[in-house]
Write a protein that binds this DNA or RNA. Structure first.
Length: 820
RNA sequence: GGGCGUAUAGCUCAGCGGGAGAGCACCCGCCUCACACGCGGGGGGUCGCUGGUUCAAAUCCAGCUACGCCCACCA
């Protein structure tokens, strides 16, 4: 014992001390040559610029509970930590720093800017894994990896080369989501949608032969300058005669064909759609299929471009006003009304996305997706909860090409070299010369890869892939990936695809999609809303164990409100555990722990521990951490403290050898079961156990045999508990003659029947309480009798159910009689 | 527009085919030699609404309402 155990458990100091000790003793370390079956989880690499938030805390807790449980069961556990370089996010952070000095990245130039990012990371980045420590996360901190580490970077480039070899990679000018502020393309998954109110403007396009006009509707008036066609649905009876004729785009005065395309919605607007391949994804597709020109009037800065003529350099809002004014003058404005619709925003900076045509690298995904669909269909990869697997499958079955290039400076530079002769060489290392013309003047592609392109390799690039390392052979495939719902597609799907393609096996078997933690009022936790709760502050105030318990407790549903009540419950559990340990240790001191029970309360608690363990293991295996928390709470409070400890106390005082040994055994077992959820307080108490060497973190998890549950003892105790409640409620104690002597002793002990009453305040039978109890029993008896009188129930319900009802009726009648 | 989820005690949630539960809050009684951050007892609920299936529905099915999330090329 390091210090006398105070009645109030204070996690502060204790937790930090154990975090340091476990680490220094190397208990988190995983070695390829260590014994035991491997159990592997890779922590979702947080952004290098990030700080621990509640989602990380929940996810870290879930993973740590699993990892600690498996470690105790003798698995060779590897919980791999690390960081994601987070290309666009990190670049934005450093650009903001520069902006404070009035500079842009272009003032520094590419090399100096990237150098600046590294410096920034050195000073301010990479703090979050350290914050995981305060949660008690038993990560192998020595294995910290970064997606921009040298070895990891080579893996990323090797992935791209492989895709090229497979023929899935291609470069093309296509329409992409362009963020004018970040000045880069982003993937569909990095676009967030927000509802806004714009104007829906209906514009008359005169027919070239002067025979009338066709009216289109748009929310983006300025883009009419880049219109190249008007499309109608071929099945639209209103427009059948127009197809093949020519319309004139107002302002631009351009003659464009009227074409038919089934993707035009007959119901929407006027049923006629202006086609602008340069500024709309659907129009782009229609344009390519109909061989239409691709005009542009908006530039990469989001402003009207030179092609917009007189409006060049103006904002789209200005252009909108100006064009509407002119249309009105010309009598071509048919209608203009407010219209609510969804617009795409950049996930990182909130800027409105411009669909623009640009030259990018794309990867066709169908062949990558096919095996990744199969492994989920076949159950080789399972989602928890299972419905999330359907979400995954739906997306995978409709997968679209992935735009992997980004016009950023911070990231993995695309390993493609261009020669003036037109040759493009895809290679991990810079080629010495052009294979086609022999020239040595090669230019590397300026762009970098999507940050998710590198995260996709996390489960095996961290183990040394593409090299055939001992780690890779030992620790791949892994077992569990626990993550947030919003990155199923961005990350989980791509890991499964890359693992199957590059290593030939799934990266993990179970995908846990954990809850989204909402603020206590049900709103999203966010800094800007002021609804965020910092887990570090919660840990500092209530302790890591309490926080872990609380997070487990609330982790059951898809969305869950953060609750201080759940944390508080965890704190009370830690305190309760601490105090019952003080009780047992103060008596049992140097006894040798034993779990071969003699007396009834011992047989009972040993049985309870076993059945609770069984339920606990079921809960853990099903990733039902809320159930795990519930079980541990009731096991500790109700079973161990309120009943076992109360019952055994007099025997402990008397120095009964069996009681001393068993109570220590019970305590040890309880600490073992609690350790995965509450590692610090349990380790602290464990270290106070006399003559107990070693650490709880690596202690043996008990194995259960067939006879570990004593149903008889549990039944007798249940009867004792009922009688005690009846007495406490009514002051009346039924005859005990039919009770086991041990049971009578326990009842007398917990009810303190052998103690003299104070101040003559002897509590006699309470007539009202007794009457109430009688009424309750009468009701139960009537209900059971009615059921058994129901012939359909007796004949159709399962026999054991009918028997159970008979047993209940007997018991109720017995108790009713006892109350007379 | 498609998909998913949630509606049970004042609050946060469990239960998911046979006696309405937990924690917190509330009321009453206890400083009982582990813990007053504790112990014991108690009050409080047409289990969102409407139908259906069943001997039996909080629990299964259908529809409705409200809220939340994800996906989506209706301009």
């Amino acid at each position: 014992m390091t210090a006398p155990m105070e009645p109030l458990y204070a996690p502060q100091g204790v937790e930090e001390r154990w975090q340091r000790a476990w680490d220094e003793e190397g208990l988190f370390r995983a070695r390829a040559d260590a014994p035991g079956d491997p159990y592997v989880i890779a922590v979702p690499p947080p952004n290098v610029t990030g700080a621990l938030h509640m989602g990380h805390a929940l996810n870290g807790t879930i993973q740590d509970v699993l990892v600690r449980w498996h470690r105790m069961r003798g698995f060779n556990t590897l919980w791999q930590p690390g960081y994601d370089h987070a290309g666009i996010a990190t670049q934005n952070v450093v650009e903001k720093e520069l902006a404070k000095q009035g500079k842009t990245r272009h003032d520094l130039g590419r090399e100096a800017f990237v150098e600046r990012v590294w410096e920034w990371l050195e000073e301010y980045g990479k703090v979050i894994i350290g914050q995981f420590r305060s949660l008690g996360a038993s990560l192998d901190y020595e294995r910290e990896r970064f997606t921009k580490d040298e070895g990891y970077s080579r893996a990323v480039l090797a992935f791209l080369v492989r895709l090229h070899q497979r023929g899935w990679l291609y470069r093309d000018s296509r329409i992409v989501n362009w963020c004018p502020r970040c000045a880069t393309a982003i993937s569909d998954l990095e676009v967030v949608h927000e509802h806004v109110v714009d104007n829906l403007t209906s514009i008359r396009y005169p027919l070239a032969d002067g025979s009338g006009s066709v009216t289109i509707a748009t929310v983006r008036v300025p883009t009419i300058l880049a219109d190249v066609a008007v499309a109608v649905n071929p099945d639209d009876p209103r427009y059948g005669a127009l197809v093949g004729r020519t319309a004139i785009v107002p302002i631009a005065n351009r003659e464009v064909p009227i074409i038919a395309d089934p993707r035009v919605e007959i119901e929407f607007g006027t049923g006629a759609l202006k086609i602008t391949p340069g500024h709309d994804p659907l129009d782009f597709e229609i344009g390519r299929e109909h061989g239409l020109p691709e005009l542009t009037v908006i530039g990469f800065d989001g402003l009207m471009s030179d092609e917009a003529g007189a409006l060049a350099g103006r904002s789209q809002e200005d252009a909108d006003r100006e064009i509407v004014r002119q249309l009105e003058e010309q009598g071509l404005l048919a209608a203009r009304e407010p219209y609510e619709h969804a617009v795409g925003l950049c996930e990182r900076c909130g800027t409105r996305i411009e669909p623009l045509i640009s030259l990018q690298w794309f990867c066709d995904m169908e062949d990558l997706a096919r095996p990744a669909i199969e492994v989920v269909e076949q159950g080789r990869v399972r989602f928890h909860p299972a419905q999330q697997g359907e979400v995954y499958l739906h997306w995978m079955r409709n997968i679209r090409p992935w735009c992997v290039s980004r016009q950023l400076w911070w990231g993995h530079r695309i390993p493609v070299w261009y020669c003036d002769c037109g040759e493009a060489i895809v290679s991990v290392d810079r080629p010495a010369s052009c294979g086609a013309c022999g020239a040595s003047e090669l230019r590397q592609d300026e762009d970098v890869l999507d940050t998710w392109f590198s995260s996709a390799l996390w489960p095996f690039a961290t183990l040394g892939w593409p090299d055939d390392t001992a780690d890779l052979r030992r620790f791949y495939p892994g077992h569990v990936n626990s993550t947030a719902r919003e990155i199923i597609f961005l990350w989980v799907a791509r890991m499964i695809m890359s693992g199957l393609e590059l290593v030939g096996d799934v990266p993990f078997e179970d995908v846990i999609i954990h809850s989204t933690v909402l603020a206590p009022d049900g709103r999203r936790m966010s800094k800007s809303l002021g609804t965020g709760i910092d887990p570090l502050e919660v840990i500092a105030a209530h302790g890591a164990d309490a926080t872990r318990y609380g997070l487990c407790k609330i982790s059951s549903t898809q969305d869950v409100r953060f609750s201080y009540g759940a944390i508080e419950e965890g704190r009370k559990l830690a305190n309760k555990l601490w105090n019952v340990s003080r009780l047992i240790l103060s008596y049992a001191g140097d006894a040798a722990p034993d779990l071969r029970p003699q007396a009834l309360e011992e047989r009972w608690i040993v049985s309870r521990l076993a059945s609770a363990q069984r339920e606990l293991e079921t809960g853990l295996a099903a990733y039902d951490f809320a159930e795990v928390a519930r079980l541990l709470y009731h096991l500790t409070f109700d079973d161990v403290c309120d009943w076992y400890a109360e019952a055994v106390k007099p025997r402990l005082r008397e120095g009964d050898a069996d009681a001393l040994a068993t109570s220590l055994g019970v305590l040890e077992r309880l600490l073992t079961l609690l350790h995965p959820v509450m590692p610090h307080v349990t380790e602290e108490i464990w270290s106070n156990l006399p003559g107990r060497g070693g650490r709880l973190i690596v202690a043996d998890w008990p194995t259960l045999d067939e006879g570990s549950v004593d149903e008889c003892a549990e039944a007798v105790l249940a009867r004792v508990q009922e009688l005690a409640t009846l007495y406490r409620r009514s002051g009346a104690l039924p005859a005990l003659d039919d009770l086991d002597p041990d049971a009578q002793r326990i009842l007398r002990t917990v009810l303190r029947l052998d103690r003299p009453a104070k101040d003559g305040k002897e509590r006699g039978p309470d007539a009202a309480a007794l009457e109430k109890e009688r009424a309750r029993l009468d009701k139960e008896i009537a209900r059971a009798e009615a059921m058994l009188a129901n012939e359909r129930f007796v004949s159709r319900a399962p026999a054991e159910l009918v028997q159970a009802e008979r047993d209940k009726l007997d018991r109720f009648r017995r108790e009713r009689d006892a109350l007379r």
